[in-house]
């Protein structure tokens, strides 16, 4: 019994010693989804306690129907190799998405689905934003199984208040 208590205390101590990173993911376009996932998976590999809080369009990543169809925005994206006004032309978003996916593959980058899997294997916690679900009419059943919980601003702040790093993407 004493052994068990000791183990629990040691586990708690270990958790306390871990650095914590909390990332708010507010966007659902490919170029804005990769950076938080790269950081989250790397932080997990570095033994951080990692939390991702998905809100607004970031919730698309947690949406069963949308996660495989994330796109890159051709309009209003100053990083595009063309005048941004051309982005309004039909097919531009799909073309930009196709180009980026090709570059991702050539660069030896994993797909978002793989990053989700790697993140979960590394113990990264996925938090869905409750107010966003209410506003956008998203149901719990529509979310991928990897979601750990559905929380609000107060719960996020509680997590973030103990964090060593917080980021808004």
């Amino acid at each position: 019994m004493a052994q068990e208590v000791k183990a629990v205390v040691e586990e708690a101590e270990k958790k306390k010693q871990k650095k914590r990173i909390v990332i708010i993911c507010s966007k659902g376009t490919l170029d804005m989804v990769y950076p938080p996932f790269i950081l989250a998976t790397t932080a997990a590999a570095m033994d951080f306690d990692v939390h991702m809080y998905f809100t607004f369009w970031g919730m698309d990543v947690l949406n069963k129907k949308k996660v495989d169809n994330l796109k890159i925005a051709a309009v209003g994206n100053p990083g595009m190799p063309m005048p941004t006004i051309l982005g309004i032309l039909p097919g531009m978003t799909n073309m930009a998405t196709w180009m980026m996916k090709k570059q991702i593959k050539q660069g030896g980058f994993p797909e978002i689905k793989e990053l989700i899997k790697t993140a979960k294997e590394g113990g990264v916690k996925f938090h869905a934003c409750e107010p966003t679900m209410n506003v956008m009419g998203i149901k719990k059943e529509e979310l991928i199984d990897e979601v750990d919980d559905i929380i609000g601003a107060a719960a996020y702040l509680e997590l973030a208040s103990e964090a060593d790093i917080t980021l808004f993407v």
């Binding site: 590999a45 030896g108 980058f109």
Partner: peptide, 13 residues
């Protein structure tokens, strides 16, 4: 070889 950040670190782990 051929893999980019963050894959080498993830695979090393």
């Amino acid at each position: 070889r051929g893999l980019m950040c963050p894959m080498p670190v993830l695979k090393t782990k």
